[in-house]
Structure formats: C-alpha cells, structure tokens
Design a protein around this nucleic acid. Structure first.
Length: 310
DNA sequence: GGTAGACCTGGACGC
DNA sequence: GCGTCCAGGTCTACC
C-alpha cells in the first residue's frame, strides 16, 4: 500500500482539460489514460523512483496515489514536482487575466499549458522537438526513458551527463542532438543554469531569452518555447507550424517572412499572454483534425500526427 | 546582419 | 522490399 496525497488546486483547475493542453502530455514517461482520465508517471524522488497516478477527486482537489510509501521529505518533493507539472502555481487570478485579454477561451476555461516536473526535462523535450516530425520526438523520449531512465523515470541530469554520445545516437535515436543534450545535462548538473533567476518575475524576458539562446541546441524557436515552459508568455515560438497556422487558419498570404510579421501583429493585442492565445488557436485546429485531445493515446499520436494527416 | 549548407531521422513515395 | 526524396530548427562559415 503506497502513499496518497491530497493536492489542493485552484478552483478552476480541470485535470483533463489542463493536462491535455500541450503535446508533452503524450511524451514518455507521461501516460494519459483516455478512459479513466488519469495521468500516470514515475517521479524521481530522494529515495528513488515512485510512480504516481493523478486523478481529479472533486473541484479544487486532486488525489495522488503512489506505488510505494513516501517519506515526509519525499511527499513535499513530490508535491513540488506535481505543482510544477500541472502549473498549479497559476491561480484563478492568472486565468482571469488571460481571459480578459483573450475572452475566446473564457467559456472552455483553457488557460494552463501542461509541462514537465523539472526544467531539465522541459529543455530536453524541447530539443527533441526541433527539426523533426512528431513521430521522431515521440520515439526519442521513449528511448531516452527506456535506456537512460531509472525505474521508468525521465533521465536525471546526472545520468544524462554521464551518457555516451553513442547511446544517445544509436539507441535513443536523437541523431546529431546527442552531444548538445549531454552538454545541456552537464550544465544543469554543474549548477550553471540558475532556475531561480530564470523564473524570478523581476528578471526581464529579453535577458532570459538571450540566455536561453546561448545554450547548446537552443535557437530562437526553442528559446521561445522554453520561455513559455517557464511561465513567460509574452512572445511566440515561431516554427513551420506557426507559419502553416498563419496561412491555413488565419488566411495570411505572402512569403514566410511576411507571414511571420503578420502573425506578430495578430498576437500583439494579447500582450503578456501572446503565446497562450496562439497556442490555444493551434490546439483547437489539431482537435478539429484528431478529435478532443483527451482521447489522444500516447502510442497512436506517433502515427496519427504525421504530415499526411494534416 | 543575412544566408547557404550540413547535420540526422523517419515518413512518404516511386519502382 | 528497397532506394530516394524531403521536412524540420540550429549551428558554422562566409559575405
């Protein structure tokens, strides 16, 4: 019999809606149960891995059931990781702020974007999403968890820092990203990434963006995406999907450069919530093609989300 | 400051 | 079933 935690959430938190809000929810080691509407994943805690199953108990309360007994320190640690992953730190005031900037999402209540329990995992997942189609991203994360993750966890920065480039390339199929991922892991492991500074509200967005861009494997798109993962929504992460969205959903015409300028102008009114407005537009488009995101199965998204299906 | 080409993988397509 | 082409973001070298 493992430990159980009751987690108080903001009143407007909805596990199904708010987990199934960003692609990382279908990347290993996350496992969304499309029938039970639970999120299962192993967490790396002080005394080792522990798998948690998260379910919505009632409005404002989540139940976290673990597969082993946790110490008091581990309970606090797990709570911190879950809070980060589910963005429980973004309270109702934040949601209301977003909805008054962009009322289109008020009815559905969409306001939060799922992320990882750690910044390290978010950064590595972002690198695995660059310059590849979705099926490759799915596979890279699956293989990293399989070959480098203890007890089904996402690899820790310490483990990843010790990994061989051959393992990452040959077994985890990350290609030329191998050395970059190891270099990132070493930087995290050596404490060269100041998470407190990156998350501090007093740190200007421009400085965070410039720092992120200086990291190995992180360019303008990845830096913009990590900004969002850090809770900074004032800029977009522009990739080919963004341009496609500009053309297909917003009807913009012209060269890619012209379309990007139009996109920047289009999202300007949403100010500090720009990314969210953009993302939920894009997410809605995906749902029109693939059905509600809560029905997306982890294994099937690898094949469903291919060019021919869009 | 802008740009061409290399970097890998896996899906799509033609045979 | 095999070979070829192509998409995707970052990095380096070069102008």
């Amino acid at each position: 019999m493992g430990s159980t935690l009751k987690i108080t959430t903001p009143r407007d938190y909805d596990l199904t809606r708010d987990v199934c809000s960003y692609g990382y929810f279908v990347l290993a080691p996350n496992l969304w149960d499309t029938n039970k509407h639970t999120l299962t994943r192993p967490l790396h805690l002080e005394d080792g891995p522990a798998t948690v199953v998260l379910r919505q108990e009632s409005k404002g309360t989540l139940k976290a059931s673990f597969d082993r007994t946790l110490s008091a320190a581990e309970r606090a640690e797990a709570k911190g990781l879950i809070t980060r992953m589910l963005r429980l730190n973004e309270d109702e005031t934040h949601s209301k702020g977003f909805h008054s900037a962009d009322p289109r999402w008020k009815k559905s209540g969409r306001a939060r974007l799922f992320r990882s329990p750690t910044l390290f995992e978010d950064v590595v997942k972002t690198v695995t999403s660059c310059n590849v189609a979705w099926p490759s991203t799915v596979n890279m994360n699956k293989q990293m968890v399989r070959h480098l993750g203890q007890g089904g966890c996402f690899p820790t920065e310490a483990r990843m820092a010790r990994a061989r480039v051959g393992t990452l390339r040959g077994r985890c199929r990350v290609g030329y990203r191998d050395q970059r991922i190891i270099d990132l892991a070493k930087m995290f492991h050596r404490g060269e990434i100041d998470e407190a500074w990156l998350e501090h509200t007093g740190t200007p967005d421009d400085e965070v963006f410039a720092f992120l861009k200086s990291l190995p494997g992180i360019g303008p798109y990845a830096a913009g995406n990590i900004m969002m993962l850090l809770g900074r929504y004032s800029r977009l992460a522009i990739d080919t999907e963004t341009v496609r969205h500009g053309k297909a959903a917003l009807g913009f015409k012209g060269t890619d450069r012209q379309i990007i300028k139009k996109l920047e102008k289009h999202y300007e009114p949403f100010g500090e919530y720009k990314f969210k407005s953009y993302w939920f537009e894009l997410w809605t488009f995906y749902e029109t093609k693939q059905g509600p995101s809560e029905t997306w199965d982890r294994e099937k998204t690898a094949t469903a989300f291919t060019a021919k299906n869009f």
